[in-house]
Write a protein that binds this DNA or RNA. Sequence first.
DNA 1: AATGCTTGTGCGTTATAACGTACGATGTTA
DNA 2: TAACATCGTACGTTATAACGCACAAGCATT
Lengths: 176, 176
Amino acid sequence: MTQPEIAKNLKAHRTNLSWSLTKTAAETGVSKAMLGQIERGESSPTIATLWKIATGFHLPLTAFIQAPSPNEFMHFKNGIRFKTLFAFDPILKTEMFAHYLEPHQSQLSAAHDNGVTEDIVVLTGEVEILAAGKWVYLQTGDALRFPADQPHGYRNPTSLPAIFHNIMHYPLLKTP
Amino acid sequence: MTQPEIAKNLKAHRTNLSWSLTKTAAETGVSKAMLGQIERGESSPTIATLWKIATGFHLPLTAFIQAPSPNEFMHFKNGIRFKTLFAFDPILKTEMFAHYLEPHQSQLSAAHDNGVTEDIVVLTGEVEILAAGKWVYLQTGDALRFPADQPHGYRNPTSLPAIFHNIMHYPLLKTP
DNA sequence: AATGCTTGTGCGTTATAACGTACGATGTTA
DNA sequence: TAACATCGTACGTTATAACGCACAAGCATT
């Protein structure tokens, strides 16, 4: 791991919410002078103050220490970034993707063929899944299985990017 | 998230390696006086020094800020930490796990039943998979499918923890 | 143009993180 | 028991994180 870039992360989260330094100082309890210095890289905050900042943003501490990292082999469809991990296999009748959701991004999907089941596992961030008519909230590490033969959808309610795996199961002898 | 307990984490990692404060100071470049104060909770380190400590231990920064008990629903078997994401489903004939490998940890697995296929997707770190008699190197984000009806294994060649998903496909009507 | 408001930065002070060294406690060897 | 080594902590000093306040630049309203 390389040295974390707190400066960029803090500025990204702050401008993402359109917060001023004064507003941020009020929310976090850290003086706006210090916030400015941290953003400019002139100061390396202590864990205590970084924790105050994180809780003020209602975000985990890790959101400020690790760099937002995209990945290789990325594809795009309807504005959704995804990556095919395993293409459809006619014997196993499954396929698997990694999906990347930008902050507040959402996507609806039409019903698939009868009997199709879909699995979701959230890798980073938080995701809401529309399954069986309800939006289900999933945190990092959570997993959800639901029938995909009806309209469903994905959305990222947070201001941080989210990544999830989804595995499609096609029990019938149909190609996706 | 609650306030991170750097003190316990640091002491845990240090005593785990049987390192003295002097040894730790030499490895990390942080004075042993400071290390002692951090362990006793008398000082809240800056991100810069915590990063020096983490790199000295060859661990990610997150190993010191998040509580030592990483996740819920964690199980142990043969010294391997894993988590069942989806239990075996007799209709889909699949099951899915998240595996956690410590630095330099390795595990060999006997052959499964005939026709069983296994999928690996690396989430964090780097992993080597013994498949079809060869060790295959996988980086973060890489995916590998291989027949599991022969001896296979997993190992983490790095000094950082690794996490991977694996999905078992049982095409025959056998329970795992 | 003048007034008020908000933005982010600069400055002086205070609190404390970080350092190097010294010390008492404990354990080991002669 | 004395000499030595190693452990973690206490002390005094220095570097810097964190604060409150003041200030200049930009924008909107009058």
